[in-house]
Simulated scan of single mutants.
Amino acid sequence: MSTITTTDDLAAFCMRAAAAPYVTVDTEFLRERTYYSKLCLVQLAIPGDDPSNAVLVDPLADGLDLGPLYELFRDHGTVKVFHAARQDLEIFAIEGDVIPEPLFDTQVAAMVCGFGEQVGYETLARKIARAQIDKSSRFTDWSRRPLLDSQKRYALADVTHLRDIYEHLSAELDRTQRRAWVEEEMAVLRDPATYRTEPADAWKRLKMRNPTPRFVAIAQRLASFRETYAQSNDVPRSRVFKDDALLELASLKPRDPKDLGKARLLLREGRRDPVAAGILQAVEGGLAVPKEDLPSLPQPKSRDQSNAALADLLRVLLKAMSERAGVASKLIATASDLDDIAAGARDGIWSKGWRAKVFGRDALRLCNGEIALACEGNAVRVVPLGETVTDG
């Protein structure tokens, strides 16, 4: 099991990878005690059974520069293959300011090819590569050195079997002419904004129930302070203070350290400077917002109960269309999307691109009374109004 610990060796492998049609990629990282993921290992594999075609890259090795890897990521001649790529891509977007191109995510491709909702790597390895993954090293400290042989075998398996998975799914996409469907899904993963959390937008993560505008103004500033502090000090936002403490503070509106002491949910770390000072400053900023400038949460979409039957019909239609297409239904539309359509929405991700062809157009036709649904044995089919429905 080859482990790369020098920049020259990494450059040599990346040169080989640049001549290959694809390279499979995975990472091991830690994030329990930091805001940003700590990259501990990179796994790479190119086609072929030669043991030298699969390597581990140790980013913790003294003097190792990942520059050659980032150059490979920018090389459009080699497809970069990941499984459930988002967390891996976030690391490279932040540490290397690079998002691999071209990009292929086997989890997304598997959903398009009928393997179900967010199918795991172990399932695909078993079904496609006929391999069993040893999970014993999954929850391990990847920052400790030296790595055990069991850890290395586990890490390499994440990219060696991925070669078979990619080749199978790629061929299936060509056979079904659905490669463009996966490309549509890659747009979000290729967008650098996907991996940035702006402090000013951090409040949108909060679950606030019918708050007052003043409450929202304070919560916005508390969330912005917490995000800025967490990013600057590379600590998890929950280590600054948790969401429930933030919402309690927005309700209490503490003006001084004595008021801060009344917060039941604020842990000891949050009562010390500079966090305590930041909390009081954020509250003061929220209280100072003029009444006419106060924010408010968007009003929830009205979902008339009279549309419940239509929502149920849309669920039947979605299930039928997803099964017919062999695509995971949640990739087409969510339960919330169906409720929105039943309540009058006529635009959404479900109404664009390949989703419109598979489901969206028929969903709108159903809402407009242009089609009906009929059972034929165990199947459901779309019936244009005016067509005679015969017994199945």
Results as ranks from 00 to 15, higher is better:
138 R>E: 04
117 E>C: 02
53 N>C: 10
348 G>N: 04
29 F>D: 11
231 Q>G: 10
261 G>E: 15
68 P>K: 11
57 V>Y: 08
234 D>H: 12
212 T>S: 15
40 C>F: 14
312 D>T: 15
32 E>V: 07
286 G>A: 02
6 T>C: 02
91 I>S: 12
389 V>C: 11
298 P>Q: 02
232 S>T: 15
360 G>I: 06
182 V>R: 02
233 N>H: 15
54 A>Q: 02
304 D>H: 02
133 I>M: 00
284 E>C: 08
11 A>I: 06
81 V>G: 06
334 T>P: 00
382 V>N: 11
94 I>E: 11
142 W>K: 03
67 G>I: 01
61 A>S: 10
1 M>N: 04
112 V>W: 09
244 D>I: 08
360 G>C: 06
254 P>V: 01
88 D>H: 08
71 E>K: 11
113 C>H: 03
207 K>M: 05
27 T>I: 05
325 A>H: 01
146 P>Q: 05
289 V>R: 01
102 P>C: 07
215 F>R: 04
6 T>M: 03
236 P>E: 09
130 R>A: 14
286 G>P: 00
16 R>A: 11
44 L>T: 05
372 A>E: 15
109 A>C: 09
167 E>A: 05
26 D>F: 05
348 G>K: 05
257 P>D: 14
222 L>M: 09
95 E>K: 11
156 L>D: 04
302 S>P: 06
309 A>K: 11
104 F>M: 13
155 A>I: 03
108 V>W: 07
196 R>T: 12
199 P>N: 07
46 I>E: 14
260 L>Q: 06
318 L>V: 13
266 L>W: 12
7 T>C: 13
28 E>K: 13
355 R>D: 13
334 T>D: 01
222 L>C: 08
171 A>K: 07
127 K>Y: 01
202 A>Q: 07
220 Q>T: 01
40 C>T: 13
254 P>R: 05
21 P>V: 00
375 C>Q: 13
95 E>G: 04
75 D>T: 07
44 L>V: 01
332 I>A: 12
257 P>M: 10
153 R>K: 10
144 R>P: 08
381 R>Y: 09
67 G>Q: 08
87 Q>G: 13
309 A>Y: 04
153 R>S: 09
273 D>N: 14
61 A>Q: 05
368 N>P: 07
165 I>D: 03
303 R>N: 11
95 E>I: 06
22 Y>H: 15
45 A>V: 09
208 M>S: 02
329 S>E: 15
131 A>G: 02
266 L>G: 12
213 P>G: 01
223 A>D: 05
112 V>L: 15
54 A>N: 04
120 G>H: 11
76 H>M: 09
141 D>R: 13
220 Q>A: 04
231 Q>S: 08
48 G>W: 09
